[in-house]
Amino acid sequence: MKIVVCVKQIQNPEIPSAQFRIDEQAKVLIPVSGLQPVLSPFDEQAVEAALRIRDSLGEDADVEITIVTIASKASRAPIKAALALGADNAVLLSDSVFDGSGGYVTARNLAEAIRTIGDVDLILTGRQAADGDAGVVGLGIAEILDIPAITFARDVRINDGVVTVQRVLQDGIETVEADLPALVTISNELGKVRHASMRETMRAAKKPVNEWMPDDIGLDETQVGSTAMRYKLERLYIPVNDIECEFIGGDTPADIAAALAQHMREAKLI
């Protein structure tokens, strides 16, 4: 059984907001120097979902997990991290023309890479990347490949060629199933991801990482980069916050609470 996990590498989203900078002229993020890129957290959980499926199906199922990502050669660390967690191999769409073309083109490029891999049973992606926050690519891949897609999974199981997914709803849980091949997007409710073992980390260095160019997946120049893009980034900026916080103090918790309640009453909130 073949599982593909599509991942994106991004600047660590947990940095303090004071370090977050934008170049408004160039409309790009200014990377924090010395900071290694990481797997987008939802994508890391998609890797975990794939590993859990392999664990539950056992050795006989012969599960092969392939990581697919778009990244120029800048950093291999996030891919190595995914391989160290237990993925078997990786495909890197490594031409710089693949970079930064938005969800529409990214989905098309990833879908072609998955077609080229061939006979993929299950595709997993994060529910959205933690930089663009769009949530478009996963569903886009499924539409392009014309396979069923199930979103916002907290649990994914495979049984006899059927994927069963518990979806997180605002007011509950929904169980949805589909025949393979299918695509599932993973939400943070999947829970904790495992840590790489020393043994897997050592093995990861020897795992195959294939670098593919547009030619390798049958794309011509009209299907990649800015020529294929359907959107234009007009502006990128950090919103200004001009609220001044008035601190309420007091000697005891009761004093502070009384002052707060008073403010709430003055504002006619209670």
Partner: peptide, 20 residues
């Protein structure tokens, strides 16, 4: 139409237009 949307986990805003 110019769409303003939140990105980078709410830290930034982007304004995008579409060609189709």
């Amino acid at each position: 139409p110019h769409m303003t949307r939140s990105c980078f986990g709410g830290l930034a805003r982007e304004v995008v237009t579409f060609t189709k």
